[in-house]
């Protein structure tokens, strides 16, 4: 059985994700309402929002980089939200979506999934179809 090659966080040139681990400003599953409101605002602000490590021009983790590459390949305009620069969003988004990892992709307010799901959907042609269904223009690659 073959596992597809996956991007990974590399110590060279990439932020080492475990270094400087953020102490959550949330306790357990509680989240401050203000953080949830901020997340809701961000998700509503653009059709396609990617919560990621680093910025689109310089992703700091291989999983985030993979999703940026897919979206860029489809020429989808998206808003990248760097969770490394905002500890409240970093922990809050995991509670908000009940999803433990970054990146997280939202399309028209709906949580689509993390890097593995986005990649599978892209490879199956489902991502372009879904974006098109939602009225977001893409180019096929």
């Amino acid at each position: 059985m073959r596992l597809p090659s996956k991007p990974r966080c590399r110590s060279e040139g990439f932020h080492r994700c475990r270094v400087g681990k953020i102490q959550p400003n949330v306790k357990g599953k509680q989240m401050m309402n203000s953080t949830a409101d901020r997340i809701r605002d961000v998700i509503a602000s653009s059709d396609v929002v990617l919560f990621m490590k680093g910025v689109p021009a310089a992703p700091q983790c291989g999983f985030s980089a993979a999703v940026v590459q897919i979206l860029s390949g489809l020429a989808v305009p998206f808003r990248g939200v760097d969770v490394l620069s905002d500890p409240q969003i970093r922990e809050g988004i995991k509670v908000f979506s009940n999803w433990p990892t970054i990146p997280q992709l939202y399309v028209k307010g709906e949580f689509l999934g993390g890097a593995d799901i986005v990649r599978e959907m892209f490879q199956a042609g489902e991502l372009a179809a879904l974006l098109s269904d939602k009225g977001i223009a893409t180019v096929s690659t």
Partner: peptide, 8 residues
């Protein structure tokens, strides 16, 4: 404890 897990 588990930092990265690519899932299929």
């Amino acid at each position: 404890a588990l930092h990265a897990l690519a899932l299929e």
